[in-house]
Design a protein around this nucleic acid. Sequence first.
DNA 1: TCTGGGGTCCTAGGACCC
DNA 2: TCTGGGGTCCTAGGACCC
Length: 423
Amino acid sequence: MKPIFGLLDGNNFYASCERVFNPQLEGKPVIVLSNGDGCVVARSNEAKALGIKMGQPVFLIKDLIKRHKVAMFSSNFELYGDLSRRMIVTCAQFTPHIEVYSIDEAFLDFSDCQSRDLTMLGQDLKQTIRRGLGLPVCVGFAHTKTLAKLANHFAKKTPRLNGVLDLTVVSDLRPYLEATPVSEIWGVGRQYGKMLEYYGIRNGWQLANSDLSFIRKKMTIGGVKLVKELNGISCFDLQDMPEPKQTITVSRTFANPIDDFEEIKKAIATFVIAGGEKLRKQSSAARGLSIYIRTNPHNSDPKVWCGHTVNLEEATDYTPTLLKAASYALEQCYRDGFRYRKGGILLFDLCEKDKIQRNLFSPAPNPEQSALMRAVDMLNKRMGKETVTYAAKGRSNIWQPIPTLRSPRYTTRWAEIPVVKAI
DNA sequence: TCTGGGGTCCTAGGACCC
DNA sequence: TCTGGGGTCCTAGGACCC
């Protein structure tokens, strides 16, 4: 019995989230910007039709935006994250086996539905999400994840399919594969795409029928699995239970270049605090911490990158210890006299919190530290972000961009809940 | 003037061990 | 003086994904 994978994908997810509470935007071009409003990270179909590209710097398309009255939003991750969570909850009505692949995508296991009409099932799922959340989605079904991706791709771009395509009932996949440029296959990026084209492999069908030893040599084992998946042999399983992350990073571009050590220190502290929260959320502890800062690589400023890594004696999830290490690291690598534009931290060498390898000479673990972290995390969860925080991050943060174009966080803040007015 | 953020996997090569 | 084979661990770098 072959497995059956469904891939559910939100259409233009961030842009669609903006429309949920702002229906006047239906049919109009909408774009969502990156942190700091620097570049475009999501586009409605109308915006795509205007030629606005993913990742395009906003300043390059200012005229276009003005001329076509493109609705423009700062990113509102609280809203998108919450709607994404609700989308997954809705999927759970259809199958308990869900792999949350990204904020707008999930793989669903329907192997138990061998004899069901999957097209109808997909339509039901799609309409349930549309009715319940106001979000448009597409669903693709196939016997492998890679083909489910492909099915979703066609479901999205072929109006006749009405958002759902079941490839498990298609006996000849050739037309679908042949119509797909090789670099649009999941797992083939720009570099591999160029290489394959050089060798005459231009579409999915040619890739599916290419020589495995050649693929092994050029694209390593991952490429071999990819080709098998295109031939209907499943190599990538559904990952129900997400593994804890092996590294945690937090980084940001600053609103303006900063040449002040104290301000940079506050920014780094803010990243460490956020990283510590992520760490504890997955019940991990970190043995390694790196920090870095860099200047703007896009302008004529001198290209400077400074970083430093600290290996802690013992893995920890205690934010004050991480803050101390980060502060030390920054002092080690900071170079005076440059305008830094971005900074970040990396937590690595993670282990499970309750399996920390202890040092013979280290003092006994302090239960008060764990209790303190638990209390802080709980307060911030229940009473709102930063109800309790650390002095190290400072009170004013000149590095933090102000999201002037952000829509209200309708579903996660009482003060921003939508108001219905009687006329 | 103005260009995002956060991850994963795989391999090659060097150091080191027996 | 010359000569072998097998293994592990670590890191850097390159590819990919959203």
